[in-house]
Design a protein around this nucleic acid. Structure first.
Lengths: 189, 189
DNA sequence: GTCTATATTTTGATAGAC
DNA sequence: GTCTATCAAAATATAGAC
């Protein structure tokens, strides 16, 4: 991707994360890119197109990352560990984008909204299928699979809100806390 | 509280929840209240004052509700159950307000932001103290107390996002799922 | 307490030169 | 690929009549 088109995404991601999509203006994005606001429209058709791009690549990368981390893993319990670990790591390493993906859905056009929700459903289904298999096998607790999956995914997202790179705990430390907590909550005693 | 002042809050809460604070205009709020936008300013000094009012009463009510639900409860484990139950119920019963409280902090002035974060800290400390006592007593797992508390609080907030009143599960059903899942994750085996 | 009218600013987006 | 100039619409908020 050309240089400026990339830079616009990086700057917009930073601003959308800090101030929110609606509170961020095209001129602010342009200003931090060192160009005039009219020049933005050479690269993107609208402000919403920038938001959609962020959503789309974030969801694609998240799903690709999960599939890669599940490759060659055997056993339901280990699959679940790998899935939680993958989810947490991605959310901590791409904090700003995942925060936007979780909170700025309302800025999308109805068409784009539907596309992103479909991507999200695909991702969640991979996780839900693992939980489902564990419940059916009797090694996971007998609770509502959707509630369990949302609970686990959301508690991990929390990390992306308070995590500060370079702090007391590393990404791997935090990921393992969530893996242990989620698995302890899931496994029957 | 007088009639219209109340109605403005109810209408604004609904709009902020559905469209977000920045995407909602004063004229939309006024329109749904059946008055002109200028009349809003007789009741509130600014749009931000409306948002602050929502944040402030929601946090106060949340904390009051928790304290009431902990009254007379003995034992660390039962306190934790009561706390999670209280948290989930409040979030499901006051879905719109708690969603705003969790996602629209950035619309506040720096002064109001500091006040609301202080209220939130007070609330979290009550929960963290219970977890701390459980860890110290050796009945809860030996993990980072802040991570655990954020994980539990956030996973319950998730309910407020997807919960539809009148659906398959009642508020109490859902609360008990979260109580069991959180406690199972916390208790040492 | 609500109205009409308006001030002021800013927004997203477009046209056309270079 | 970036610029200047500009449009049209919408925003928050205020002034003053009733």
């Amino acid at each position: 991707m050309p240089h400026m088109k990339d830079k616009i995404i990086r700057v917009a991601t930073s601003l959308f994360h800090r101030k929110g999509y609606f509170a961020t203006s095209i001129s602010e994005i342009a200003g931090l890119c060192g160009i005039q606001k009219a020049s933005i429209y050479y690269h993107y058709a609208s402000k919403e197109a920038i938001l959609y791009q962020i959503h789309s690549t974030t969801m694609d990368d998240l799903t690709t990352y999960l599939k890669g981390n599940l490759q060659g893993v055997d056993g339901i319990e280990d699959c679940m560990r790998a899935a939680v670990r993958s989810h947490v790591r991605f959310h901590l390493e791409r904090q700003k984008e995942t925060f936007i993906a979780n909170t700025e859905l309302r800025g999308l056009t109805p068409e784009h909204y539907a596309l992103i929700v479909a991507k999200r459903d695909t991702y969640e289904q991979i996780i839900q299928e693992i939980i489902q298999r564990g419940c059916a096998a009797g090694i996971f607790v007998d609770e509502d699979v959707k509630i369990l999956s949302y609970a686990i995914l959301t508690q991990c997202n929390a990390g992306a809100i308070w995590y500060k790179p370079g702090g007391r705990l590393t990404v791997d430390d935090i990921a393992e806390v969530y893996v242990r907590f989620a698995l302890q909550g899931l496994m029957v005693r």
